[in-house]
């Protein structure tokens, strides 16, 4: 029972953060059509900002969410309004835009990562926050991990309500279905796309902040998270936000089980699932 709880709650913790990361990427790819290779760099920046504010100013990491989120959102929004909007208008076809924007995000990845290396170096950094054990029916978890799960789940729920209930959320969903028609229905498509990209970046940043509470961080950690996000997005079906959420939980569970069996195999397992999935059902579990 304790072992089961260990694996299950461990899976939820991993899954929650994977879902948050993947929903962000899914929003950027599903709506804005940018497969953002620099997604993990936004996670890394979020993590380092939180770490820096905690170590140098003593700011509570949870309070820093309120600073990191909006700051990274603005960066994402502006990037889309300048770089990606320009690319979009100059591309010959949607496919050309997807290719071009993919390459541009490679460029962004190099820029962000190396600016971070110049600023913060390449050492592993960590800090201790809420590092006490909590017992759930005998299974013990660090309080910071449970907090991370709580916040990740909370952000996903808030975001879901935003998409489902608000006018802007409906505009985003319309744009995801069919940008041209949405544009004709009076949706300001440029702003919605930039908003989606910004929101995706925001979620990456928040995920980074949360991650920094629990795990050691490095300026070179971004790509690994990008890859996990891509795996989850493919698992859930490209462009399906609910799919990304479910995919995140599934991959988290798998990760937790594999960690229990043999920790050194977890990345192998992820890639194995990923490759198998692409061969058997490339559209993912919820894809069309």
């Amino acid at each position: 029972m304790v072992e089961f709880l260990n694996i299950f709650i461990g899976g939820l913790i991993l899954g929650g953060i994977y879902a948050l990361i993947a929903v962000g990427l899914s929003l950027q790819y599903g709506v804005a059509r940018v497969l953002n290779i620099s997604h993990g760099e936004f996670i890394m920046v979020g993590a380092f900002l939180t770490w820096a504010m905690y170590t140098f100013w003593g700011l509570n990491p949870l309070a820093s969410l309120a600073i990191v989120g909006p700051a990274i959102f603005v960066v994402g929004f502006v990037l889309h309004r300048t770089l990606f909007t320009r690319l979009r208008t100059s591309s010959a076809s949607p496919a050309a835009y997807e290719g071009g924007s993919l390459i541009a995000t490679f460029g962004l990845m190099f820029i962000i990562q190396n600016l971070a290396i110049i600023t913060w170096g390449t050492d592993i950094e960590a800090y201790s926050f809420l590092n006490t054990g909590v017992s759930i029916f005998g299974a013990r978890f660090a309080a910071n991990r449970l907090t991370m799960l709580l916040f990740a789940a909370g952000i996903c729920v808030v975001f879901y309500l935003f998409l489902a209930r608000t006018r802007l959320g409906k505009a985003i969903r319309a744009a995801a279905q069919d940008p041209e028609t949405a544009g004709m229905m009076g949706v300001n498509i440029k702003r919605v796309l930039a908003l989606c990209f910004g929101l995706g970046a925001l979620m990456a940043g928040l995920a980074g902040s949360l991650l920094s509470m629990c795990y050691p961080i490095r300026t070179t950690m971004g790509l690994e998270y990008t890859i996990i996000a891509i795996i989850v997005v493919v698992l859930g079906g490209m462009g399906s936000i609910v799919g990304s959420f479910i995919g995140g939980l599934i991959l988290g569970m798998v990760g937790s089980i594999v960690l229990y069996i043999d920790p050194s195999l977890s990345l192998v397992a992820y890639y194995f699932i990923f490759i198998l999935l692409l061969l058997v059902r490339p559209t993912g579990i919820l894809g069309k």
Partner: peptide
Amino acid sequence: LIFGIILIVAIL
């Protein structure tokens, strides 16, 4: 860093 910048300039 320069590589990234050149890349974005090139694609644009």
